[in-house]
């Protein structure tokens, strides 16, 4: 039995996001520091084969925002999942530093918890918070992401290690699963075996009916996994597990989790035990660490790519 470790989201901010933020700040927000809704996307974790060493190198567990994150009717690229979040942009660096981050974070984690308890809604499980200060004259952007995740107490443990899904599902079942997930994979889903060596999938909020006549060892809970590390599932699983323990406490002492990473070969599966026993709201964690590995803000210095003078200098 080892403790399950989760790969935390790492933010990837496309330059177009800062361009759009500058525009929104100047034209729409002006001096207001109201919250702005945002959309981020993540997709399956990827590994890349290093051609020199032959090793598979896992890429980061990325969640990205871009210029289109501000638009309300943003449609994600194929095979990716959207996560909703809030942007809070401050007018001065002091306000940014002194912001009541704990209150903002707690507010968001409360919202997630409420949506679990009241609506049994999995759509709101992956949320994020972004606080920013845009130094528009110097083209510098200070920012800090938080991805609230409920910390299970006691911790989740895994029976053996994470393995490839062939250990639990047959080749045919995996092919059938891949077909069902391929065009628009859901962030979270349930899997049960069906006739002819295939599987059926269903949304997580149909848990009780879908798994009503299915023996526990045939139930599988899947999620689209942004992590590519062999033994660390991605961040979204934490809130899914919190959801399952809160909404279906009696049926989820043991859960078989499928980390779907785009195809059967790179996906992982494992049987987890433990998790919280009472239905109180667990504490949440999830502020992103900065480049130095500490809890702190990051800075994107876009002067080299935005400042007309600097651009003119290097264009010879």
């Amino acid at each position: 039995m080892t403790v399950v470790q989760f790969a935390q989201f790492s933010s990837l901010v496309q330059p177009t996001f800062w361009h759009e933020l500058s525009r929104v700040k100047l034209d729409v927000l002006r001096l207001s520091d109201d919250s702005v809704p945002l959309t981020a996307t993540y997709s399956t974790g990827r590994t890349i084969k290093d051609r020199n060493t032959g090793q598979d190198v896992p890429l980061g567990c990325n969640i990205s925002v871009g210029g289109e994150s501000f638009s309300e009717d943003y449609s994600p690229p194929p095979n990716s999942i959207t996560a909703r979040g809030v942007l809070k942009n401050y007018n001065t660096i002091e306000e940014f530093k002194n912001a009541d981050k704990r209150a903002l974070f707690n507010k968001l984690s409360d919202e997630i918890w409420d949506s679990i308890i009241q609506n049994h809604d999995v759509a709101a499980l992956t949320r994020f918070l972004l606080i920013t200060f845009a130094d528009l004259k110097k083209y510098k952007f200070y920012y800090w992401f938080a991805f609230p995740a409920f910390a299970a107490q006691p911790l989740w443990e895994i029976d053996d290690d994470w393995t490839t899904p062939e250990a639990h599902l047959s080749q045919d079942q995996l092919t059938s699963l891949a077909e069902q997930l391929s065009p628009t994979p859901p962030p979270f889903f349930l899997v049960r075996p069906a006739q002819d060596n295939t599987v059926e999938t269903a949304p997580v909020n149909e848990f009780s009916t879908f798994f009503a006549d299915v023996p526990q060892q045939s139930q599988t809970i899947g999620f689209l996994d942004p992590s590519a590390q062999a033994s660390a599932p991605g961040w979204p699983l934490r809130n899914l597990l919190a959801y399952l323990r809160a909404v279906h406490p009696e049926a989820t002492q043991t859960v078989r989790v499928l980390c779907w990473r785009g195809d059967a070969a790179s996906s992982r599966i494992g049987v987890l035990r433990g998790g919280p026993v009472d239905a109180d709201k667990p504490s949440a964690v999830g502020w992103e660490k900065n480049v130095q590995g500490k809890l702190g803000a990051r800075v994107a210095d876009l002067a080299p790519m935005m400042d007309p003078k600097r651009l003119a200098d290097q264009a010879v």
């Binding site: 403790v3 470790q5 989760f6 790969a7 910390a151 107490q153 033994s231 660390a232 964690v285 590995g293």
Partner: peptide
Amino acid sequence: AAAAPSKVPPPP
């Protein structure tokens, strides 16, 4: 408040 559990789960 959340530090204790958070110390263990993230892999690094």
